[in-house]
């Protein structure tokens, strides 16, 4: 960690101007990932712009029935909020499946969207990592890649996105609201995170200096049910080997709406469009659900140590969707 200057922003404008899109500047939210990475030397900011005291810390229903979650709402407050628990159980469950009570009290909504991969090679300065040092190679591809991606990876990067919340956001068609030097814009959550391609150093489509101000949750279809389920190597306080967020709405026994996303499998939360397409209009049976899930995972390309993820994700999603379709 090198010496760093610090500014506590009083407004979004002040924050954006203090950051200025400089590569050596970072917004400081809960710090649970940024401070961790600064200690490891992976992040080396010279300027910290503290945004935790910006007035972006509430959860509010909008006139159109959607819910707006401010970027500095802490994870625990998001998960506990009655609007979220009642309308978006999948979001509440995803948040509560991640990290620990302490970390959720610190981590912010916006920060959760921007957390970096937990790839051990990314975190170790001595290892080749295209995400950390573009062009340096990827030590994980031939290394211990038990935890790495099976979908959408590239020869340049096999890292996974570690967030639980973002998997749920992808499944509910959330929208990310950004403020930046060039004004505000919105990006669908499913397009916010990138696949690595040949630029794995870019986790998201955020532009230099842009600040997440809110996440918008559109109203789910009437009668929709949702659930988040995560498998990890201990019963709590661990990152996902695989996870599934699912939203289903049935009418007269037929699936009318499906939102399905995988976590732990790819560089971004993996929206399972093929699965959704295969489910829509069907009367779900164990076989049809399994087929729909397999349609998505057919394109998985496992690495040496992680072929288990494909079958694990398949059975997990089949279990979650099967159980949701009987309660919907």
């Amino acid at each position: 960690m090198k010496p760093v200057s610090y500014l506590r922003a009083g407004s979004v404008e002040e924050a954006a101007s203090a950051h200025g899109g400089r590569t050596e500047a970072r917004y400081l939210g809960g710090g649970t990932n940024l401070v961790d990475l600064m200690k490891l030397g992976v992040e080396r900011p010279e300027v910290l712009v503290d945004i935790t005291r910006l007035p972006l810390d509430d959860v509010r229903e909008q006139p159109d029935g959607s819910v707006r979650v401010g970027a500095t709402v802490r994870n625990s407050d998001l998960a506990a909020h009655p609007l979220i628990r009642e309308r978006y159980p999948v979001v509440s469950q995803a948040v509560l499946s991640g990290a620990s009570g302490q970390l959720r009290n610190m981590a912010t909504t916006g920060g959760n969207l921007l957390q970096r991969t937990r790839c051990a090679y990314f975190q170790d300065l001595a290892k080749a990592c295209n995400k950390r040092v573009p062009g340096s190679g990827c030590a994980a591809i031939e290394g211990v890649n038990h935890d790495h991606a099976v979908l959408g990876h590239s020869p340049h990067c096999v890292a996974t996105n570690p967030s639980d919340l973002c998997v749920a956001l992808a499944a509910v068609d959330a929208v990310v609201e950004l403020a930046g030097p060039g004004g505000g814009r919105t990006v669908p959550a499913t397009e916010f995170h990138r696949l690595p391609g040949d630029q794995p150093e870019l986790d998201t489509v955020i532009r230099p200096g842009e600040l997440i101000t809110a996440v918008l949750l559109p109203a789910l279809p009437h009668g929709a049910v949702s659930h988040y389920r995560k498998v990890r190597e201990r019963a709590s306080y661990a990152f996902a080997l695989a996870s599934v967020a699912a939203v289903l709405q049935l009418e007269d026994g037929e699936i009318r709406h499906a939102g399905v996303a995988f976590g732990g499998l790819a560089h971004r939360p993996w929206r399972a469009r093929r699965t959704e397409a295969a489910l829509l209009g069907t009367r779900p049976s164990p076989e049809s659900v399994a087929r729909a899930v397999e349609a998505e995972l057919a394109e998985a390309v496992p690495l040496r140590d992680n072929a288990y993820k494909v079958t694990l994700a398949r059975d997990l999603a089949t279990q979650v969707l099967g159980s949701l379709s009987t309660t919907a």
Binding site: Y6, L7, G10, T52, R53, L54, D57
Partner: peptide
């Protein structure tokens, strides 16, 4: 249910 840190939106006192 919703907890805020003490309202304290002020820049730090130290010079840039």
């Amino acid at each position: 249910t919703t907890i805020r840190y003490a309202p304290w939106p002020r820049p730090a006192d130290s010079p840039p």
